[in-house]
Measured scan of single mutants.
Amino acid sequence: TIDDAFRAIERAIQAENEGRYREALKHFLDGGEMIVTAAEKEASQKVRNLLLHKGKEVLEWAEHLAEWILE
């Protein structure tokens, strides 16, 4: 659900702030994927587009974090 997705993102932010970057990455990926999944089930085109945009933002952040971890 969207609530689960945002809880995962909150955990990711907390982990990132505490320097637990790999854990943060996992939570960002989980949250982003949950948002995209919820968007695919959404009946309203406007809400679907907003959710897809937010999911994409979260997944892009996860990608940047992963690249930073690997440096």
Rank of each mutant, 00 (worst) to 15 (best):
T1I: 11
T1P: 07
I2D: 01
I2C: 10
I2T: 04
D3L: 14
D3S: 12
D3N: 11
D3H: 12
D3P: 06
D4F: 05
D4E: 12
D4N: 10
D4C: 12
D4L: 12
A5F: 09
A5T: 02
A5Y: 05
A5N: 01
A5L: 07
A5M: 06
F6H: 06
F6A: 03
R7D: 04
R7Y: 04
R7K: 11
R7I: 07
A8D: 02
A8T: 12
A8M: 15
I9H: 00
I9K: 00
I9M: 03
I9T: 00
I9N: 01
I9C: 06
E10N: 10
R11F: 09
R11L: 13
A12P: 02
A12D: 00
A12Y: 03
A12S: 01
A12L: 05
I13D: 00
I13C: 13
I13Y: 05
Q14F: 06
Q14P: 00
Q14W: 05
E16G: 12
E16Y: 15
N17F: 11
N17P: 02
N17Y: 09
E18V: 05
E18H: 06
E18D: 09
G19M: 04
G19D: 02
G19C: 12
R20P: 01
R20H: 07
R20Q: 04
Y21W: 12
Y21D: 01
Y21L: 06
R22A: 09
R22P: 04
E23N: 04
A24V: 03
A24C: 10
A24Y: 07
A24S: 03
L25S: 01
L25K: 01
L25Q: 02
L25E: 00
K26P: 00
F28P: 00
F28G: 01
F28V: 03
F28N: 00
L29K: 11
L29G: 01
L29P: 01
L29F: 07
L29N: 03
D30K: 14
D30Q: 14
D30C: 14
D30I: 15
D30P: 02
G32P: 01
G32S: 11
E33V: 12
E33D: 09
E33P: 04
E33I: 14
M34S: 05
M34Y: 07
M34T: 03
M34H: 03
M34N: 02
I35K: 01
V36K: 12
T37Q: 14
T37A: 15
A38E: 04
A38Q: 07
A38R: 04
A39K: 02
A39G: 03
E40C: 15
E40Y: 15
K41W: 08
K41T: 08
K41P: 02
K41A: 09
E42D: 03
E42K: 04
A43K: 13
A43Q: 12
S44H: 08
Q45H: 08
Q45T: 10
Q45L: 11
Q45N: 06
Q45G: 09
Q45V: 10
K46G: 07
K46D: 11
K46P: 07
K46M: 11
V47T: 08
V47W: 10
V47L: 13
V47E: 04
R48L: 06
R48Q: 04
N49P: 00
L52H: 03
L52I: 06
L52W: 06
H53F: 10
H53C: 14
H53W: 12
H53N: 12
H53M: 15
K54V: 15
K54E: 01
G55K: 04
G55T: 04
K56E: 04
K56V: 06
E57G: 04
E57F: 09
V58W: 13
V58G: 00
L59V: 04
L59D: 01
L59H: 03
L59A: 05
E60C: 12
E60N: 07
E60F: 07
W61I: 04
W61P: 00
W61F: 05
A62D: 00
E63N: 12
E63Y: 14
E63P: 00
E63M: 14
H64Y: 08
H64F: 06
L65Q: 00
L65S: 01
E67T: 09
E67S: 10
W68E: 01
W68I: 07
I69V: 05
I69F: 07
L70F: 06
L70E: 12
E71D: 12
E71V: 09
E71A: 14
E71R: 10
E71S: 13
E71C: 12
E71M: 13
